[in-house]
C-alpha cells in the first residue's frame, strides 16, 4: 500500500466525499441515542437537580474543543516538517468546527453556571484558559487568511497553532493546579465519579460530537481543495461541475 496515495488532494477529495456521509449518519444515530439516554432515561442529580443535564452537551463539546485543537496542531506539524499541502488544508478545515465547539462549551457552561454557581462567568483558571483556546482558534483562522500566498498563510498559522498547544494541558489540569470555581474532572484516567447511565449518555454524546466534527471537517476540506486547486487539470475534469 502506498501511504502517500491519499496525501494528494485529488485522491483525498474523492475519499473525503465518500466518507463524510457515513460520519454524519453515525453522528445522527449516536446523537439520538445519547440524547435519549441523557434527557429521557438518566435520573436526576442529587445535588443539582435537572439542570445538570447540560453536562450531556457541555462535556462532549469541551472535550472536542481540545481534541480538535490537538488534531489541528498535529496536521500543522506535518505542514511545517514535510511541507505537505493536504495537511495544511485539513488544519484549515478543522479550525472553524473547533472554534464552534469551543464557543458552545463556553456558552453551555455559562448557562449551567448561573443556576448552580450563581454566576454566568468568573475569571477562574479553567474558564479563562478555555476562552484563550477560542481566541487561539480565531487567531489561527485570521492568520491563515492573512497572506496573498496561501502557502505562507499555512505556515504562519501552523506555527501559531503549535505554540498554542501549551494551552491544552493548562485547560485540562487547571482544576488541579489552581483554586478554581469549576469542579474537578468527573471522568479521568483513574476512574469516574458518575452514575453509570449518566456516564454512558455523556460518552455516547462525545462519540456523536467526534463523528460530526469529522464529517464537517471532511466536507469543508473538499471545498478548500476546490478553492486552492481551481486551476488544476483534475478539478477542471470533475464531472458535476
Amino acid at each position: 500500500m502506498n501511504w502517500f496515495y491519499f496525501s494528494s488532494p485529488s485522491t483525498f477529495y474523492g475519499l473525503a466525499g465518500r466518507l463524510a456521509p457515513w460520519f454524519f449518519a453515525l453522528a445522527a444515530v449516536t446523537a439520538v441515542w445519547g440524547l435519549y439516554l441523557g434527557l429521557l432515561v438518566a435520573p436526576t442529580d442529587a445535588q443539582q437537580g435537572e439542570v445538570y443535564r447540560v453536562i450531556f452537551i457541555h462535556v462532549p463539546t469541551a472535550w472536542m474543543s481540545m481534541f480538535l485543537y490537538f488534531v489541528m496542531a498535529c496536521y500543522c506539524g506535518l505542514t511545517l516538517v514535510f511541507n505537505t499541502r493536504l495537511s495544511a488544508m485539513m488544519a484549515r478545515a478543522i479550525a472553524p468546527t473547533g472554534a464552534l465547539f469551543t464557543a458552545v462549551a463556553l456558552w453551555t457552561g455559562s448557562f449551567w453556571g448561573k443556576p448552580t454557581w450563581g454566576t454566568y462567568w468568573v475569571w477562574d483558571a479553567r474558564l479563562t484558559s478555555e476562552l484563550v483556546l477560542l481566541f487561539l482558534y480565531f487567531g489561527f483562522i485570521a492568520l491563515s487568511n492573512a497572506f496573498e500566498d496561501p502557502r505562507r498563510g499555512d505556515r504562519a498559522a501552523a506555527l501559531l497553532a503549535i505554540i498554542g498547544v501549551v494551552n491544552l494541558p493548562i485547560i485540562y489540569f487547571s482544576v488541579q493546579w489552581w483554586n478554581t470555581l469549576h469542579q474537578g474532572s468527573s471522568v479521568s484516567f483513574k476512574g469516574t465519579s458518575m452514575h453509570v447511565t449518566m456516564l454512558t449518555g455523556m460518552l455516547v454524546m462525545s462519540f456523536s460530537a467526534w463523528f460530526y466534527a469529522a464529517g464537517a471537517a471532511l466536507v469543508r476540506v473538499r471545498s478548500i481543495i476546490l478553492e486552492r486547486e481551481r486551476r488544476a487539470q483534475w478539478v477542471r475534469e470533475l464531472k458535476e461541475g
Partner: peptide, 14 residues
C-alpha cells in the same frame, strides 16, 4: 457563589 463537586448520582444513591 456555590462550588459543587464533580460527583453526579441520583438522590437514592446519595
Amino acid at each position: 457563589l456555590a462550588k459543587h463537586d464533580e460527583n453526579y448520582m441520583p438522590p437514592e444513591a446519595a
